[in-house]
């Protein structure tokens, strides 16, 4: 009896697998966008996707994965469009653009910031929450050297802790070089937070308790829009010395990119993507709206398009912009 049952179960499994055979590839009017794992890229995907649907009559979907994995899929042509490419974070990007493996269509925004942040109450205190200033003279990254006891690492209580870059991001290497070059090694631990969700949770948790924390972070993000953190100053940006970790982070180019051959298949849509240009401030505002209102990405994208209505005329022809406006209302 048991043998029979087993055979039946195996037959059912086989049927189930056969029934789920993947449907054949999507038609030509479908665009796959990269979801590399953070909020702002998903928001931009939904904004671009909403326009693709309503002004160009294209369908779209997202493919999720980490930055390196989506980048590989992008190079192989499985992903068509990257709406928010942090060029500094992917070392081979520049070379791949030059050799034509991928196409850089335009700059989404380049007014962003990243670096080491501390909560404002660490420097100025917060009377409303009853927090005294803990390090009133803290201005620059190097000043942190004076405060190993303030930013104490509970795992190694004799040293301070600086939360560094996410493992594998290009900034992680640069920050670690900075950490060594500035001489933090003797009194501080360079702590890799493991994932951006974990880093955000660490900052929020310290902020809620009014505790000091010194951590790498970046803008635009809802976290930076919601919490009051101060970017510590550093040496002026210099492209060569930056990679040795000796200067501040320059504003990184965050570009819109497409796979090879995309421009010939979708010339009109490519033109729109080349025009697609927003700003860090706009993106932050939309992310904060999403965090506060609890809207999903699609509704936040609609909010974004209504809020920054005038941009539609820059990105699109009059006819296309009208189609998007009609869909919004």
């Amino acid at each position: 009896m048991n043998m029979k049952k087993l055979i039946t179960m195996m037959a059912i499994s086989l049927l189930a697998l056969a029934g789920c055979a993947p449907s054949t590839g999507s038609g030509s009017g479908h665009i796959v966008m990269a979801d590399a794992g953070w909020d702002s890229i998903r928001l931009h995907n939904h904004v671009v996707g909403f326009i693709a649907e309503n002004a160009f009559d294209l369908t779209w979907s997202e493919m999720s994965g980490s930055t390196p994995i989506t980048y590989e899929a992008f190079k192989n042509g499985e992903i068509d469009v990257y709406t928010e490419f942090w060029t500094e974070n992917v070392a081979p990007y520049r070379g791949d653009v030059e050799s034509g493996v991928i196409l850089e269509l335009g700059v989404n925004f380049n007014d962003n910031y990243q670096g080491i942040y501390v909560p404002r109450y660490v420097i100025e205190g917060d009377a409303a929450r009853g927090i005294e200033p803990m390090a009133p003279n803290l201005r620059t990254v190097k000043d942190l050297l004076d405060y190993p006891d303030l930013f104490v690492d509970e795992e190694v209580p004799s040293k301070g802790r600086i939360y560094g870059g996410i493992p594998g991001w290009a900034v992680d290497e640069i920050l670690y070089k900075k950490f060594m070059a500035y001489g933090f090694d003797d009194t501080f631990i360079y702590f890799r937070p493991g994932s951006d969700a974990a880093l955000s949770a660490a900052i929020i948790s310290a902020y809620d308790r009014g505790e000091p924390i010194a951590a790498y972070y970046w803008e635009p993000t809802w976290l930076m829009a919601q919490y009051d953190l101060v970017l510590l100053e550093d040496e002026p940006f210099d492209a060569d010395r930056f990679h040795e970790g000796l200067t501040e982070f320059g504003a990184a180019d965050v570009t819109v990119a497409a796979r090879k051959g995309f421009d010939t298949e979708f010339p009109e849509f490519t033109e729109f993507l080349s025009n697609y240009s927003t700003s860090s401030a706009m993106t932050s505002a939309a992310l904060l709206h999403m965090q506060v209102s609890g809207d999903d990405y699609l509704n936040s994208a609609k909010w974004f398009l209504r809020e920054y209505d005038e941009y539609l005329d820059q990105w699109l022809s009059a006819e296309q912009a009208a189609a998007v406006r009609q869909a919004l209302n």
Partner: peptide, 8 residues
């Protein structure tokens, strides 16, 4: 492992 995977 995480670092190497993240860097491909």
């Amino acid at each position: 492992v995480l670092i190497s995977v993240n860097r491909v």
